[in-house]
Amino acid sequence: MPVRVEADIKVWQRRDRNKQLAIWGGWFAGVLLFAYCWQIISVNTTWFFVWDSPRIAADIGSRMVPPRWEYIYKIWDPLWDTINIATLGTMLALFMAVPVAFLAARNTTPHAYLIRPVALFIIVSSRSINSLIWALLLVSIIGPGVFAGTIAIALRSVGFCSKLLYEAIEEIDHSQVEAIEATGASRWQIMAFGIVPQIMPALAGISVFRWDINIRESTVLGLVGAGGIGLQLSSSLNILAWPQVTLILIAILITVVVSEWVSAKVRHAII
Protein backbone atom coordinates (compact mmCIF):
# COMPACT_ATOMS: atom_id res chain seq x y z
CA MET A 1 0.00 0.00 0.00
CA PRO A 2 1.43 3.36 -0.94
CA VAL A 3 -0.71 4.84 1.84
CA ARG A 4 -0.28 3.42 5.31
CA VAL A 5 -2.05 4.46 8.48
CA GLU A 6 0.41 4.92 11.30
CA ALA A 7 -0.99 6.13 14.59
CA ASP A 8 -3.94 7.80 12.86
CA ILE A 9 -1.67 9.57 10.42
CA LYS A 10 -1.83 8.63 6.77
CA VAL A 11 1.69 8.17 5.48
CA TRP A 12 2.18 8.42 1.75
CA GLN A 13 5.05 6.75 -0.02
CA ARG A 14 5.79 6.61 -3.70
CA ARG A 15 5.88 2.84 -3.75
CA ASP A 16 4.92 0.14 -1.35
CA ARG A 17 7.62 -1.78 0.45
CA ASN A 18 7.84 -4.87 -1.73
CA LYS A 19 8.02 -2.88 -4.90
CA GLN A 20 10.70 -0.63 -3.43
CA LEU A 21 12.71 -3.67 -2.34
CA ALA A 22 12.38 -5.21 -5.78
CA ILE A 23 13.68 -2.01 -7.35
CA TRP A 24 16.66 -1.87 -4.98
CA GLY A 25 17.31 -5.53 -5.70
CA GLY A 26 17.23 -4.86 -9.43
CA TRP A 27 19.75 -2.06 -9.13
CA PHE A 28 21.98 -4.19 -6.92
CA ALA A 29 21.95 -7.06 -9.43
CA GLY A 30 22.69 -4.62 -12.24
CA VAL A 31 25.67 -3.10 -10.45
CA LEU A 32 26.96 -6.57 -9.59
CA LEU A 33 26.71 -7.64 -13.23
CA PHE A 34 28.52 -4.52 -14.35
CA ALA A 35 31.30 -5.06 -11.81
CA TYR A 36 31.70 -8.65 -12.93
CA CYS A 37 31.92 -7.69 -16.60
CA TRP A 38 34.33 -4.89 -15.83
CA GLN A 39 36.49 -7.38 -13.97
CA ILE A 40 36.70 -9.65 -17.03
CA ILE A 41 37.59 -6.79 -19.33
CA SER A 42 40.13 -5.41 -16.92
CA VAL A 43 41.95 -8.75 -16.74
CA ASN A 44 42.29 -8.78 -20.52
CA THR A 45 43.55 -5.22 -20.71
CA THR A 46 47.12 -4.02 -20.68
CA TRP A 47 46.62 -1.03 -18.42
CA PHE A 48 50.01 0.41 -19.30
CA PHE A 49 48.72 1.10 -22.84
CA VAL A 50 45.60 2.72 -21.46
CA TRP A 51 47.55 5.09 -19.19
CA ASP A 52 49.85 5.80 -22.09
CA SER A 53 46.97 6.50 -24.48
CA PRO A 54 46.85 10.31 -24.14
CA ARG A 55 50.43 10.52 -25.31
CA ILE A 56 49.71 8.17 -28.21
CA ALA A 57 46.60 10.11 -29.11
CA ALA A 58 48.56 13.35 -29.15
CA ASP A 59 51.22 11.69 -31.27
CA ILE A 60 48.75 10.35 -33.83
CA GLY A 61 46.93 13.66 -33.82
CA SER A 62 50.09 15.58 -34.62
CA ARG A 63 50.90 13.20 -37.47
CA MET A 64 47.42 13.51 -38.92
CA VAL A 65 47.59 17.24 -39.63
CA PRO A 66 47.78 18.64 -42.16
CA PRO A 67 45.75 16.34 -44.42
CA ARG A 68 47.37 15.35 -47.68
CA TRP A 69 45.03 17.24 -50.01
CA GLU A 70 46.58 16.04 -53.29
CA TYR A 71 45.46 12.50 -52.36
CA ILE A 72 41.91 13.56 -53.20
CA TYR A 73 42.43 12.58 -56.86
CA LYS A 74 42.89 8.99 -55.75
CA ILE A 75 39.67 8.74 -53.77
CA TRP A 76 37.05 9.99 -56.24
CA ASP A 77 36.78 6.56 -57.75
CA PRO A 78 36.40 4.60 -54.49
CA LEU A 79 33.95 7.23 -53.27
CA TRP A 80 31.79 6.64 -56.36
CA ASP A 81 32.00 2.91 -55.68
CA THR A 82 30.95 3.45 -52.07
CA ILE A 83 27.84 5.35 -53.10
CA ASN A 84 26.99 2.71 -55.73
CA ILE A 85 27.34 -0.11 -53.20
CA ALA A 86 24.93 1.64 -50.87
CA THR A 87 22.38 2.63 -53.52
CA LEU A 88 22.23 -0.57 -55.53
CA GLY A 89 22.48 -2.64 -52.35
CA THR A 90 19.45 -0.84 -50.96
CA MET A 91 17.48 -1.33 -54.17
CA LEU A 92 18.31 -5.02 -54.27
CA ALA A 93 17.31 -5.32 -50.63
CA LEU A 94 13.92 -3.69 -51.26
CA PHE A 95 13.12 -6.17 -54.02
CA MET A 96 13.59 -8.98 -51.53
CA ALA A 97 12.18 -7.17 -48.50
CA VAL A 98 8.69 -6.36 -49.83
CA PRO A 99 7.55 -9.96 -50.34
CA VAL A 100 9.18 -11.07 -47.09
CA ALA A 101 7.35 -8.31 -45.22
CA PHE A 102 3.98 -9.34 -46.65
CA LEU A 103 4.70 -12.93 -45.66
CA ALA A 104 5.68 -11.85 -42.15
CA ALA A 105 2.86 -9.44 -41.32
CA ARG A 106 0.13 -11.06 -39.27
CA ASN A 107 -2.67 -9.63 -41.36
CA THR A 108 -1.30 -10.51 -44.80
CA THR A 109 0.64 -13.73 -44.27
CA PRO A 110 -0.73 -16.70 -46.21
CA HIS A 111 -0.18 -19.01 -43.27
CA ALA A 112 0.51 -17.94 -39.70
CA TYR A 113 2.18 -21.14 -38.51
CA LEU A 114 4.00 -22.38 -41.62
CA ILE A 115 5.09 -19.36 -43.59
CA ARG A 116 5.27 -16.58 -41.03
CA PRO A 117 8.00 -18.21 -38.87
CA VAL A 118 10.14 -18.77 -41.97
CA ALA A 119 9.80 -15.10 -42.93
CA LEU A 120 10.60 -14.06 -39.36
CA PHE A 121 13.66 -16.30 -39.35
CA ILE A 122 14.90 -14.70 -42.56
CA ILE A 123 14.44 -11.29 -40.97
CA VAL A 124 16.23 -12.17 -37.75
CA SER A 125 19.19 -13.84 -39.47
CA SER A 126 19.66 -10.98 -41.86
CA ARG A 127 19.48 -8.42 -39.07
CA SER A 128 21.71 -10.26 -36.61
CA ILE A 129 24.66 -10.47 -38.94
CA ASN A 130 26.49 -7.23 -39.54
CA SER A 131 27.13 -6.18 -43.13
CA LEU A 132 30.86 -6.42 -42.48
CA ILE A 133 30.45 -10.10 -41.61
CA TRP A 134 28.27 -10.68 -44.65
CA ALA A 135 31.07 -9.03 -46.65
CA LEU A 136 33.70 -11.21 -45.00
CA LEU A 137 31.67 -14.25 -45.93
CA LEU A 138 31.01 -13.16 -49.51
CA VAL A 139 34.61 -12.11 -50.13
CA SER A 140 35.71 -15.52 -49.01
CA ILE A 141 33.15 -17.20 -51.29
CA ILE A 142 32.94 -15.11 -54.47
CA GLY A 143 36.17 -13.16 -54.19
CA PRO A 144 36.96 -9.54 -53.31
CA GLY A 145 35.38 -6.56 -55.06
CA VAL A 146 32.50 -4.13 -55.24
CA PHE A 147 30.06 -6.87 -56.22
CA ALA A 148 30.58 -8.72 -52.94
CA GLY A 149 30.06 -5.45 -51.08
CA THR A 150 26.78 -4.73 -52.85
CA ILE A 151 25.41 -8.18 -52.09
CA ALA A 152 26.56 -7.90 -48.48
CA ILE A 153 24.75 -4.59 -48.03
CA ALA A 154 21.64 -6.04 -49.67
CA LEU A 155 21.62 -9.13 -47.47
CA ARG A 156 22.02 -7.07 -44.31
CA SER A 157 19.30 -4.59 -45.32
CA VAL A 158 16.63 -7.16 -46.19
CA GLY A 159 15.93 -7.89 -42.54
CA PHE A 160 15.90 -4.25 -41.50
CA CYS A 161 13.56 -3.16 -44.29
CA SER A 162 11.19 -6.09 -43.95
CA LYS A 163 10.98 -5.69 -40.18
CA LEU A 164 9.98 -2.03 -40.36
CA LEU A 165 7.72 -2.68 -43.33
CA TYR A 166 5.87 -5.56 -41.77
CA GLU A 167 5.29 -3.51 -38.64
CA ALA A 168 3.84 -0.80 -40.87
CA ILE A 169 1.61 -3.36 -42.57
CA GLU A 170 0.36 -4.59 -39.22
CA GLU A 171 -0.48 -1.04 -38.16
CA ILE A 172 -2.62 -0.10 -41.15
CA ASP A 173 -6.17 1.11 -40.66
CA HIS A 174 -8.27 -1.99 -41.11
CA SER A 175 -11.50 -0.16 -41.93
CA GLN A 176 -10.00 1.14 -45.18
CA VAL A 177 -9.18 -2.42 -46.18
CA GLU A 178 -12.66 -3.50 -45.15
CA ALA A 179 -14.20 -0.82 -47.34
CA ILE A 180 -12.32 -2.09 -50.38
CA GLU A 181 -13.23 -5.67 -49.48
CA ALA A 182 -16.90 -4.66 -49.36
CA THR A 183 -16.78 -3.52 -53.01
CA GLY A 184 -16.17 -7.11 -54.07
CA ALA A 185 -12.51 -6.55 -54.94
CA SER A 186 -10.24 -9.55 -55.46
CA ARG A 187 -7.36 -10.45 -53.13
CA TRP A 188 -4.79 -8.61 -55.26
CA GLN A 189 -7.01 -5.61 -55.73
CA ILE A 190 -7.51 -5.35 -51.97
CA MET A 191 -3.73 -5.32 -51.67
CA ALA A 192 -3.27 -2.70 -54.39
CA PHE A 193 -6.05 -0.35 -53.26
CA GLY A 194 -6.44 -1.01 -49.54
CA ILE A 195 -2.94 -1.84 -48.30
CA VAL A 196 -0.33 -0.48 -50.70
CA PRO A 197 -1.43 3.20 -50.53
CA GLN A 198 -1.33 3.01 -46.76
CA ILE A 199 2.21 1.65 -46.55
CA MET A 200 3.71 3.61 -49.45
CA PRO A 201 4.98 6.49 -47.26
CA ALA A 202 6.46 4.01 -44.79
CA LEU A 203 8.17 2.12 -47.60
CA ALA A 204 9.66 5.28 -49.07
CA GLY A 205 10.76 6.47 -45.64
CA ILE A 206 12.34 3.13 -44.81
CA SER A 207 14.27 2.99 -48.07
CA VAL A 208 15.88 6.42 -47.76
CA PHE A 209 16.55 5.80 -44.08
CA ARG A 210 18.29 2.52 -44.86
CA TRP A 211 20.14 4.10 -47.79
CA ASP A 212 21.55 6.67 -45.41
CA ILE A 213 22.70 3.95 -43.01
CA ASN A 214 24.12 1.94 -45.89
CA ILE A 215 26.31 4.84 -47.04
CA ARG A 216 27.90 4.78 -43.60
CA GLU A 217 28.25 0.99 -43.59
CA SER A 218 29.72 0.81 -47.08
CA THR A 219 32.60 3.11 -46.07
CA VAL A 220 34.14 0.27 -44.07
CA LEU A 221 33.44 -2.71 -46.32
CA GLY A 222 36.81 -2.15 -47.99
CA LEU A 223 38.57 -3.18 -44.78
CA VAL A 224 37.70 -6.78 -45.59
CA GLY A 225 38.21 -6.35 -49.34
CA ALA A 226 34.65 -5.67 -50.45
CA GLY A 227 35.35 -2.45 -52.33
CA GLY A 228 34.71 1.21 -51.70
CA ILE A 229 36.69 3.83 -49.84
CA GLY A 230 37.50 1.42 -47.03
CA LEU A 231 40.16 -0.13 -49.29
CA GLN A 232 42.01 3.17 -49.42
CA LEU A 233 41.59 3.63 -45.69
CA SER A 234 42.96 0.22 -44.92
CA SER A 235 45.98 0.57 -47.23
CA SER A 236 46.76 4.03 -45.84
CA LEU A 237 46.57 2.66 -42.30
CA ASN A 238 48.85 -0.23 -43.23
CA ILE A 239 51.62 2.10 -44.35
CA LEU A 240 50.86 4.50 -41.47
CA ALA A 241 50.16 7.33 -43.91
CA TRP A 242 48.23 9.40 -41.35
CA PRO A 243 47.77 12.54 -43.50
CA GLN A 244 45.98 10.39 -46.10
CA VAL A 245 43.83 8.86 -43.36
CA THR A 246 42.75 12.35 -42.30
CA LEU A 247 41.71 13.21 -45.83
CA ILE A 248 39.74 9.99 -46.19
CA LEU A 249 38.00 10.62 -42.89
CA ILE A 250 37.07 14.13 -44.00
CA ALA A 251 35.70 12.71 -47.26
CA ILE A 252 33.65 10.12 -45.34
CA LEU A 253 32.35 12.77 -42.95
CA ILE A 254 31.20 15.00 -45.81
CA THR A 255 29.58 12.11 -47.69
CA VAL A 256 27.73 10.94 -44.61
CA VAL A 257 26.53 14.42 -43.67
CA VAL A 258 25.33 15.07 -47.23
CA SER A 259 23.54 11.71 -47.41
CA GLU A 260 21.87 12.36 -44.06
CA TRP A 261 20.71 15.75 -45.31
CA VAL A 262 19.37 14.25 -48.56
CA SER A 263 17.59 11.48 -46.68
CA ALA A 264 15.99 13.94 -44.24
CA LYS A 265 14.86 16.16 -47.14
CA VAL A 266 13.33 13.27 -49.06
CA ARG A 267 11.55 11.91 -46.01
CA HIS A 268 10.22 15.37 -45.28
CA ALA A 269 8.95 15.72 -48.85
CA ILE A 270 7.13 12.39 -48.70
CA ILE A 271 5.40 12.73 -45.37
Binding site: S175, E178, P197, Q198, P201
Partner: peptide, 10 residues
Protein backbone atom coordinates in the same frame (compact mmCIF):
# COMPACT_ATOMS: atom_id res chain seq x y z
CA UNK B 1 -18.75 3.33 -43.05
CA UNK B 2 -18.71 5.16 -39.75
CA UNK B 3 -15.27 6.75 -39.96
CA UNK B 4 -15.70 7.04 -43.73
CA UNK B 5 -12.99 4.39 -44.29
CA UNK B 6 -11.66 6.17 -47.34
CA UNK B 7 -8.21 5.08 -48.40
CA UNK B 8 -6.66 8.27 -47.18
CA UNK B 9 -3.63 8.44 -49.39
CA UNK B 10 -5.58 7.98 -52.60
Amino acid sequence: FQEYALVERL
